[in-house]
């Protein structure tokens, strides 16, 4: 186990020492119109970006290069070769794998009449095109090749759930507006006005002059007193008491009231029948 580890680490160290960096040779691009006429054909310099390329709606871009080891100029096939199209303005990007022959030769064709699905949604901004080479035996390389103008595409479709992953508008509570309180004079007027039926009531009662000959008789008084006590209790409930208390006190008071009521009403009935 230990031996294997040491051996593999030695091999790895050897590989790192051996690792020559990758490079590309003869990068060239060619833009052709649909009628096969050549619009532009240039060699690319890795040190300096060329003037931005622009493609019409049915132009074809051809890109050729050879991947080589930098010292020996021998073509190699890296394990991974990608062209990355990146829109800096929108952050959209697309990555397109490129087929490389064992000799290191690569050819990529971008036909704008049938754009590949890896091409990101585009606007009028340029795409930055870069070449990414990856290999297990070489250190990785990335070259900025050129800027590319392509015709604007449809805007990218919004994902139906996208809203849910963005910050939502802040929740604000809306409260019912404060109740409008009428002018003091109006409510005071009505507060007084609501008392005038009392004048009617008391006036007519005085006029009728009911006789209550038995009001203070010992048979009747307990009943009227307990009824009055009930009303006082209810008023007290409004002012101070809780529901449990009023039920308890009311229950207690109900017993004498019922007894007094029975006695008083029996007596009244007696008087009524006796008078008849």
């Amino acid at each position: 186990m230990n031996l294997v580890l040491r051996l593999s680490s030695a091999l790895l160290a050897a590989a790192v020492v051996h690792a020559a960096s990758l490079s590309i040779q003869n990068p060239q691009f060619k833009i052709t119109a649909p009628d096969a006429s050549q619009l532009r054909s240039e060699s690319l310099s890795l040190a300096e970006k060329p003037e931005a390329l622009s493609l019409g709606p049915s132009d074809v871009l051809k890109l050729t290069f050879q991947v080589v080891e930098s010292e020996e100029r021998k073509g190699v096939q890296p394990h991974q070769t990608f062209l990355r199209f990146y829109d800096e303005a929108t952050g959209e990007e697309g990555v397109q794998p490129v087929r490389v022959t064992p000799g290191g030769k690569a050819k990529f064709e971008l036909n704008m009449a049938r754009p590949p699905t890896s091409l990101p949604p585009t606007t009028s901004d340029p795409l930055k095109v870069s070449l990414i080479l990856g290999s297990s035996t070489h250190s990785p390389v990335q070259y900025e090749l050129f800027d590319l103008y392509v015709p604007a595409s449809q805007p990218p479709p919004a994902h139906p759930d996208e809203v849910a992953f963005a910050p939502r508008p802040e929740i604000t509570h809306t409260f019912r507006p404060e109740q409008r309180i009428p002018a003091k004079a109006v409510s005071a007027f009505f507060a007084l006005f609501v008392f005038w039926p009392w004048i009617v009531l008391l006036g007519f009662w005085f006029e009728i002059g009911p006789r209550v000959p038995h009001l203070f008789s010992p048979h009747i008084l307990p009943f009227t007193a307990s009824l009055a006590a009930f009303e006082i209790l209810l008023f007290w409930y409004w002012v101070d008491l809780h529901l449990g208390q009023i039920l308890l006190y009311g229950g207690i008071l109900a017993v004498p009231t019922a007894l007094a009521g029975k006695q008083a009403l029996a007596k009244t009935s007696e008087w009524r029948l006796g008078r008849k």
Partner: peptide, 17 residues
């Protein structure tokens, strides 16, 4: 009549409210 006056009183109070 006593009861009727009371009824009248209740009716007026209710109407005003």
């Amino acid at each position: 009549k006593l009861i009727d006056v009371f009824l009248l009183f209740l009716m007026l109070s209710g109407i005003i409210q």
